[in-house]
């Protein structure tokens, strides 16, 4: 199993911290096994490796991003992030002992809501994952799942009663996903919840959650606690997944129709030659 990043993973941008957590004093983190220091330097930011190499940086979507390789372009677009009436919050960063790709797959999964997020994102006996659409964009750069409907008793911090909530999922990056869900405050618009997963090692992740929402009622802290509470429910389940790396062999696990988006995600990773954090199918 690969302990070194494959070219596709090596040349990606990865979020390593929320910008609000970056100060002039250097902090340490790990990216795909490489020890990094990061700090605010003048008007910008600086990320260096243990052997003194300076890495490229980006400050975008409320996070500090870097790369161990040479990214071909900038980051994927999240147009809603720039709308002026939205609030953007780095809701938290949380570590989980499982591969980054397992973490993304869980983010795409609706079937676990009534069992893992009981009473919040789902509720028994409302367990059905209705038919939805999933496709790859024409240029093959991202996966989009639409018309994902799920019954939720308390879909967000401003919900007061249960309702069928519509989701749209995007996977524009091997370890990032952007979720759109109907806003309880304005049904014509969508709240955005982005998950930027930092692969610490092949079997360890740190997830940065960034929200861009229309909620003008709740304090940042409250929203942050809500998201951390949700993620805290996922953590023990994810840490009991075996193997910890995402298997790309189609016969490693048993998919059902509800898993359409994860099937496409696994195929997409296989097509991009991703070996870091995955178990590639035997040739």
């Amino acid at each position: 199993m690969s302990e070194q990043p494959d070219p596709f993973m090596l040349n990606q941008w990865f979020a390593i911290s929320g910008l609000t957590d970056v100060g002039p004093t250097a902090k340490n983190t790990l990216l795909m096994g490489e020890k990094l220091s990061y700090r605010r330097a003048g008007d910008g930011f600086e990320v260096t490796t243990a052997d003194g190499r300076t890495l490229p940086v980006l400050a975008q979507y409320a996070c500090l991003w870097t790369s161990l390789g040479q990214p071909e372009s900038g980051l994927f677009e999240i147009p809603q992030y720039h709308e002026t009436d939205r609030r953007s919050i780095v809701a938290g960063s949380i570590g989980v002992n499982v591969s980054a790709q397992r973490g993304v797959e869980n983010f795409l999964d609706m079937g676990h809501f009534p069992f893992v997020h009981t009473g919040i994102l789902g509720e028994l006996p409302h367990t059905e994952v209705k038919e939805y659409n999933v496709r790859l964009t024409e240029d093959g750069s991202e996966i989009i799942a639409t018309e994902c409907m799920f019954y939720q008793p308390m879909a967000s911090t401003v919900s007061t009663e249960g309702m069928d909530v519509e989701y749209i999922y995007r996977v524009p990056h091997p370890t990032c996903s952007v979720l759109y869900k109907s806003s309880p405050l304005d049904e014509k618009r969508l709240d955005v919840i982005a998950l930027f997963v930092q692969p610490i090692g092949p079997e360890k992740l740190r997830a940065h959650m960034v929200l861009s929402i229309l909620d003008d009622v709740n304090a940042d802290d409250f929203i942050s606690h809500f998201q951390l509470h949700i993620f805290g429910q996922d953590k023990p389940i994810l840490e009991n997944q075996m193997p910890k790396r995402l298997p790309l062999d189609t016969r490693a696990e048993t998919p059902i129709r509800a898993d359409k988006s994860s099937i496409m995600y696994r195929r997409w990773l296989a097509a991009k030659g991703v070996t870091y954090g995955t178990i590639p199918a035997a040739a």
């Binding site: 069992f115 009991n240 997944q241």
Partner: peptide, 25 residues
């Protein structure tokens, strides 16, 4: 290990007649 997504069944629920996986039931 649940055949669906690999979650340990030892964290599942023993109903006395069936074992329920914690992840997707």
């Amino acid at each position: 290990r649940c055949l669906h997504r690999g979650v340990r069944l030892s964290i599942g629920i023993n109903t006395g007649t069936e074992l329920i996986c914690q992840y997707h039931g």
